[in-house]
């Protein structure tokens, strides 16, 4: 079963990919499908004995370029569509034990170029409206393979979270004539209270209304709608601040901190997105203490209303002191 169904209550689309139940789940390292192929008789997903960064289509995709027809027939109330889109895996290194934090500046810099190249390539597809780069790190956020990697999804429509953010940005632009993220960056640089790290092109800060205790956003100083708008020095700066932030995360509680990284850029769909899109990478760790997680419970899941018990300013100070 591979199809997308629209929730008639929320208007949001849910993708069903039942074959993913069979996907590889936390295999032993010698059976890692993301490691390089050292024995041609036992090929992995990467057919080379070594590599820097590799990208391939997910073996268990939730969306594909040419999906089968839906299993069920839709109706006016219950709409259903084929699960068109893209799901790519980005393997950060051929070292199974590595992590993004420890790849080194040059490899992160290469990764930035790869993200940019894939954003451009997928964005050119007519069936893709939004290219979403993300990483799930750590078992607590649902990782099924330990090998350092991230993913890129190409959605056929703008997903709910960026759609809401773009709508807010559009209203802000209409009212103030400015990009809301630019204004946030200016405010955070001015206040300094929630800054975690910064360089000449990017800042990392705990958002004013962070939903998770150690949530951090990495944002370009200037209005860059996507990675494609970054110059070489800007990309250097992005690599530098990612390395800095991730090493702080790992130092925070003394273990590699699980997180979800979500990168938001201008949609690929037709539209006037340049003025309201501002590249940012959102990191969401689930830990609120070394031994405690922030669970999405009744208020968050049922009402979409987040509660937090750590002040963003204090979290930022803690992260500044870490690493």
């Amino acid at each position: 079963m591979s199809e997308r169904r629209r929730d008639p209550l929320s208007g949001e689309w849910v993708t069903f990919a039942t074959h993913r139940q069979d996907r590889t789940f936390l295999p032993p390292s010698e059976q890692c499908p993301l490691c390089p192929t050292t024995d041609p008789t036992a090929p992995t997903e990467v057919p080379w004995p070594s590599f820097d960064v590799a990208v391939f289509d997910n073996r268990f995709p939730s969306m594909v370029a040419h999906p089968p027809p839906p299993d069920v027939a839709g109706s006016g109330l219950h709409q259903v569509l084929p699960a068109v889109g893209a799901t790519e895996v980005v393997v950060y290194s051929d070292d199974h034990q590595a992590s993004l934090a420890l790849l080194g500046r040059a490899r992160i810099r290469l990764l930035v170029d790869v993200w940019a190249e894939r954003y451009a390539a997928l964005g050119r597809r007519r069936d893709i409206a939004y290219v979403f780069v993300f990483e799930n790190r750590g078992e607590v956020v649902g990782v099924t393979l330990h090998h350092p990697h991230g993913q890129i999804y190409g959605y056929p429509e703008i997903p709910p979270v960026p759609a809401r953010q773009l709508a807010v940005a559009g209203r802000h632009l209409a009212e103030h004539g400015t990009c809301v993220v630019c204004d946030v960056v200016a405010q955070e640089r001015s206040d300094g209270l929630r800054l975690v790290a910064g360089n000449d092109a990017f800042i990392a800060f705990v958002p004013f209304a962070a939903r998770f205790p150690y949530e951090v956003h990495v944002v370009a100083h200037r209005h860059a709608p996507s990675l494609l708008d970054l110059s070489d020095p800007d990309r250097d700066a992005l690599a530098a601040i990612l390395e800095d932030l991730l090493q702080r995360y790992d130092a925070l509680f003394g273990f590699p901190l699980p997180y979800v990284m979500a990168m938001h850029q201008a949609p690929a769909a037709d539209g006037e997105w340049q003025a309201v899109s501002h590249l940012r990478l959102e990191f969401t760790p689930l830990h609120r203490a070394a031994d405690r997680l922030k669970y999405l419970a009744g208020s968050e899941l049922g009402a979409g209303a987040f509660l937090s018990d750590v002040a963003p300013e204090r979290a930022a100070a803690t992260l500044r002191a870490a690493g």
Partner: peptide, 23 residues
């Protein structure tokens, strides 16, 4: 010298494309 992105592509047994990237 400047870093330029290089791409090498190959095919997997099931027909999927795979690429490795380097500077």
């Amino acid at each position: 010298p400047r870093a330029l992105l290089e791409v090498e592509e190959d095919g997997l047994a099931d027909g999927r494309r795979v690429a490795r990237y380097s500077h």
